[in-house]
């Protein structure tokens, strides 16, 4: 209890442990994903009915699925698909969100109010609901999760970049730039953006983890990439049918999702602790 009145800033699970663990896990996931482009233990989409539903190690590292496809190879290719969708959708969120967020910080008044109200409205749509609406309009495919997750990320980055930009605007060098006759747009590009880039990148790392989680859910429902493109979520969807027969089909893809999300979260938290101790507060 005495600990509670000490200056409680750094958590035990220290910044370095988190940062390095996050870096190792993320590098592993990204590495396997990139490797899948040139090499997988077996061709991931090749069906081998004679080999179907083999448990781990009997055929391949993680066994085979209902079509005899090698699960570990599917996981590797799935990593690439999952990461690319997550990355593109977070980039959409960053681009639109930071543009609007820094504009809100620069313009204040009515424009700021309108942008923040817009953020509230978009924030009211859980990604899965936007995905269902988008899928009703354009059908399922890679574009559905990209748009749904991208949309859901926009208000996140509006809020983060506005808060960070407001801090920069309070600095003397912004005042000096104003006095020198620079306009709000120039000050934003010359001074605000370079100063908030780090904070935005940290948030983006965490959002990539979240995007992987949401994409897995969407592809579990069949709202993402169409077969035969391997995807972690759909592997889990298929596994449900064979749950008692082949439980390994359900276990491996879930571990893949959890490990990837954990890696990006640890990396984001670690970076935040290292570079921005003011907002530290994660467990």
């Amino acid at each position: 209890m005495s600990a509670i009145v000490d200056k409680p800033r750094r958590s035990w699970f220290g910044p370095h442990v988190r940062l390095y663990l996050g870096m190792v896990i993320t590098a592993l996931v990204v590495g396997l994903a990139v490797l899948s482009l040139v090499w997988t233990p077996a061709p991931p989409t090749k069906m081998r009915i004679a080999m179907k539903l083999k448990p781990p190690l009997e055929s391949g590292l993680a066994g085979t699925d209902q079509f005899g496809r090698d699960i570990f190879s599917l996981l590797m290719t799935g990593a690439w698909n999952s990461l690319s969708i997550a990355l593109i959708s977070v980039l959409i969120g960053v681009t639109v969100g930071v543009a609007l967020g820094t504009m809100a910080a620069a313009k204040r008044g009515f424009i700021e109010e309108a942008i923040m109200r817009f953020a509230d409205v978009v924030f009211a749509f859980p990604a899965i609901i936007s995905a269902i609406m988008i899928a009703a309009l354009i059908g399922s495919g890679a574009l559905t999760p990209i748009l749904a997750i991208g949309l859901f990320n926009i208000p996140v980055f509006i809020r983060v970049s506005r808060a960070l930009a407001q801090r920069v605007w309070a600095n003397d060098f912004c005042l000096a730039a104003q006095a020198a006759g620079k306009g709000a747009f120039r000050i934003t590009t010359d001074h605000v953006l370079p100063n908030i880039a780090g904070g935005v990148a940290i948030q983006a790392t965490i959002q990539i983890g979240l995007a992987i989680l949401v994409e897995a859910g969407l592809s579990f429902l069949g709202l993402s990439l169409a077969p035969p493109s391997p995807s972690w979520g759909r592997m889990l969807g298929d596994a449900q049918t064979y749950l008692s027969q082949a439980p390994w089909m359900a276990i491996a893809p879930g571990i893949a999702v959890a490990v990837a999300v954990l890696g990006f979260n640890l990396l984001g938290d670690g970076l935040r602790d290292k570079f921005d101790p003011r907002t530290e507060g994660g467990a």
């Binding site: 600990a3 509670i4 699970f13 989680l213 897995a216 999702v257 959890a258 490990v259």
Partner: peptide, 26 residues
């Protein structure tokens, strides 16, 4: 928080990191 930096804090931190990463449907 009350046992900050002690074993309970470590357990809770580990639990929350892993719990956040696990998909609920899985």
């Amino acid at each position: 928080a009350a046992r900050w930096r002690k074993a309970p804090d470590r357990i809770a931190s580990g639990f929350s990191q892993i719990g956040i990463a696990i998909p609920d449907f899985w």
